[in-house]
Computed example of a mutant assay.
Amino acid sequence: MMDGFLSRPKKRKTPPNPQAHPNTDTSPSENPPIPSFPDGVKVLHDCPDATVDICFVHGLTGDRESTWTADGQSVPWPKTLLPPKLDKARILTYGYDAYIVRKGVASSNRLIDHATNLLNDLTTDRVCCNAPSRPIIFVVHSLGGLICKQAVLLSRNNPDTHLRGIFNCTTGIVFMGTPHRGAWMADWAEIPASALGLVKSVNKSLLEILQTNNQALELIQVNFWSMIRERQKANQPPDVTCFFEELPVPRVGKVVSKESATLEGYNSITIHANHRDMVKFASVEENGFKRLLGELVRWVSQLGKEN
């Protein structure tokens, strides 16, 4: 589940200003600066006459840009490789604080909190662009897939009518290494801090839900699967494709098994990479990119036929 695989966010370099909060009783030493994190929606490629939004959601320990940036590259591939292939797509990436172990303070947000933020932030972005009813496709990695599923479920029959748009407009979801049935990742918290080079601060709520047979994870899966089957019987979207990793992470093994990463009855495709690298493409010639692009192009072309 480790997008950045032991990577850490950079701390703010600006020293705290003691005059910035004159009514604060605590000193800077008592409240060390919390590392900044790029959260929320970021537009990687805008398109004034877009017919679809494609939103990327990263996984555990990743962020909205580095997760999708190949080693040796400086820019995420959805920004450079996708627009020439999908010229009517607006490309978005979503960030949330998914660092469960790091120096300082780990976010205490639960999965449902991240999902609620995704639903609200994405809805706001689309309203501001005057496109609340534009079809949307999600490309989600690892933990991001669980957050996406929960966000779609939260959108369905939401008491706030403006938040129902995400469910109504989701036309496809590409799951990449998503642990629909849990993963070993919860054991990561047991790795000695010295081995990681970190002073541990652990978001236990995220770790617990990643345990195999976790009831909350199972409930999300049951509700999502029920919704998908209901929509499928009515010949309604979303379409679903699952990608799973072929290679192990060195000294770790496969992070998400094929059995956990796939959904019965839906297309399952392998990518010849490990869990971290399966979402990092440096060239349009990489077969993993071609396989993912094939799904996106097919779904977008179907939208054109419907319209």
Rank of each mutant, 00 (worst) to 15 (best):
T171K: 10
K254I: 12
H45R: 12
T212F: 12
H162G: 03
T14R: 13
V199W: 12
S108K: 14
A183Y: 07
D71R: 12
D239C: 01
P35W: 07
V52Y: 04
E285P: 00
M1F: 10
S133P: 00
C148N: 02
V174P: 02
N235Y: 10
P16Y: 06
L143P: 09
K233E: 14
S29Q: 13
A89L: 06
T80Q: 11
H58T: 06
I166T: 04
H45N: 14
E190I: 03
H272R: 13
S107M: 07
I220W: 08
H141E: 05
G72T: 06
K42E: 13
G40M: 05
T14F: 10
E65Q: 08
K204F: 15
A115P: 05
W184A: 12
I228D: 02
I34D: 11
G294Q: 04
F167R: 01
F5W: 15
E218K: 07
E286C: 01
K254P: 01
L92Q: 03
W225S: 11
R164M: 10
V139Q: 00
E246A: 13
V41L: 06
Y266T: 06
A20K: 13
S283H: 14
I54C: 00
T161V: 11
D39V: 05
S226R: 13
S36D: 14
I228F: 15
N168K: 10
K42Y: 05
T170G: 01
F175G: 01
A282N: 11
F281N: 09
A186L: 08
T124P: 00
L217T: 03
F5R: 01
S260Y: 07
V240F: 09
S194P: 00
E264K: 14
N235T: 05
H58F: 13
A115G: 03
P159H: 08
L92R: 07
A151L: 12
L122T: 08
S283F: 07
C47N: 14
L44E: 08
C47W: 04
P83M: 08
V256G: 12
D113I: 02
L219S: 14
A234S: 12
V52A: 10
S226P: 01
F281I: 03
E30N: 10
P78Q: 03
S201I: 00
G145L: 00
L303D: 10
T26Q: 12
T67C: 09
L111F: 11
L44S: 03
H21Q: 10
E246K: 14
P22T: 04
K10F: 10
L292N: 02
Q150H: 11
S205A: 13
A216T: 11
E264C: 09
S29E: 15
L143W: 11
H272A: 08
M278T: 04
T69K: 03
L119N: 01
I191K: 01
A106S: 15
S268F: 09
N223K: 09
